[in-house]
Design a protein around this nucleic acid. Structure first.
Lengths: 227, 227
DNA sequence: ACACCCATGTAAGGTGTTACATGATTAG
DNA sequence: CTAATCATGTAACACCTTACATGGGTGT
């Protein structure tokens, strides 16, 4: 009820796919790896985790994360919760990644999906990149039309803002073209290894390792209380 | 209370400064002139107008807009409301435009202010442009630092996303540099204006927020029921 | 002793959207 | 006369943030 998210839910599933984590750690990763385009607070994260559990996509186990697991016997310890992706959750995540549909190519939705490209097949990647591109081209056309209609009524600054906006979009289109070309040519995105033979798992093409994701970005990626 | 906005309130005041309008027309202007970076629905606009009136920044008068004012004597006509900026509203708007302070240089806040640059002094424009630039430079430094910390743990796609994000920011910084230079040189923005240093050639500066973040974002800035 | 990161949560509120409800005016 | 566009609003709900409340662990 009520507290589903879109992007947050998706990102949580994606991060947990790599390894189980505490909410706390999840939030840090969200605001670093993915923080290029978005930041989240506990006030949205914890409630979101609850509903993901309720949906059967995650399990919550008391305890510590692998590293310090063997130490103290968590007897009277404070409630620490490790979230882990279930098989259903995995499946759900993959569906989300592969989703087509109009909302799938908006700015943030696209960026979120792109960040997890390492976990899909080339087919899906191509589809998403092309979907994003045509979304942007639509946008450009509308901007051009509207600019043509109203150019003379606008002052120089408004005009400059629109020009700049359009150039930004055009630039992203060029970026997408490059990425699409790379995919077509077959540049293997997947780090060091050989082509990564498909796993036994049915829908799963991603294979092995996606390493860890990193950090970067937002106003203050280092910690929350800031800027 | 409750229904104040930030950016919406600001944009409404700015548009009404030019001329009185109906809510309906306001919304259209919001989604075209300013639509480059943001779109709004009636569900937020009308409530916002109410509170602006309550604050004494607008007046509402029944009737039509100047053009068709002289026709029908609005006898049993439907409630049509013309909103007009008061002196207080004007003052308030100018304060908002000139505001310094940490929130003043975020993506959307800045874009909104920029769109109304034609209504301020060069001093304010310079201050805002420089504020935005240092905001972005902060951001870049953090992104670089965090990237340096974690580069090896990232997969190619996440890395590419971050690289592209940083380039977008760098591009906006270059754009700001040009604008600041233009202001310094004294290119007069207001109205017909002389040259405004050509830029469409080679270097192709510009660019900015793009990719992630809002820009135009909304499916259909031209009209509502669409896409 | 104190500070500071770890860690989990909730309540209230801000800021918006969608879908609905209503009706006038204009153009084909 | 019918469709589109003009025009105003409300109710429900989505999604997030801030500020609060609570407490454990580690380093100086």
């Amino acid at each position: 009820m009520s507290r589903r998210s879109g992007i947050l839910e998706f990102a949580v599933l994606g991060l947990l796919r790599e390894s189980p984590m505490h909410g706390y750690e999840l939030r840090k990763r969200l605001n670093t790896s993915l923080g290029v385009f978005r930041a989240f607070s506990y006030g949205s994260l914890y409630p979101c985790l609850k509903t993901l559990v309720a949906n059967g996509w995650l399990t919550e186990e008391p305890g510590n994360t692998a590293e310090d697991a063997l130490s103290a016997p968590l007897a009277g310890r404070r409630a620490k919760i490790v979230y882990r992706l279930t098989a259903d959750g995995k499946e759900h995540f993959e569906e989300l990644l592969a989703q087509t549909g109009p909302d799938a190519y908006e700015d943030e939705t696209f960026a979120a999906r792109f960040a997890f490209f390492g976990q899909t097949s080339r087919d899906v990647r191509m589809r998403v990149l092309e979907g994003r591109r045509s979304r942007l081209e639509e946008r450009l056309e509308k901007m051009r039309a509207s600019l043509a209609r109203t150019r003379e009524r606008l002052d120089d600054y408004t005009l400059e803002l629109q020009r700049h906006g359009m150039e930004s979009v055009e630039r992203e289109v060029r970026w997408l073209n490059e990425l699409i070309e790379s995919e077509r040519v077959g540049r293997d995105q997947r780090r060091p290894g050989p082509p990564a033979p498909e796993r036994q798992d049915a829908t799963e093409t991603s294979g092995g390792r996606t390493a860890h994701r990193g950090e970067s970005s937002r106003p203050d990626p280092s910690e929350d209380t800031a800027t």
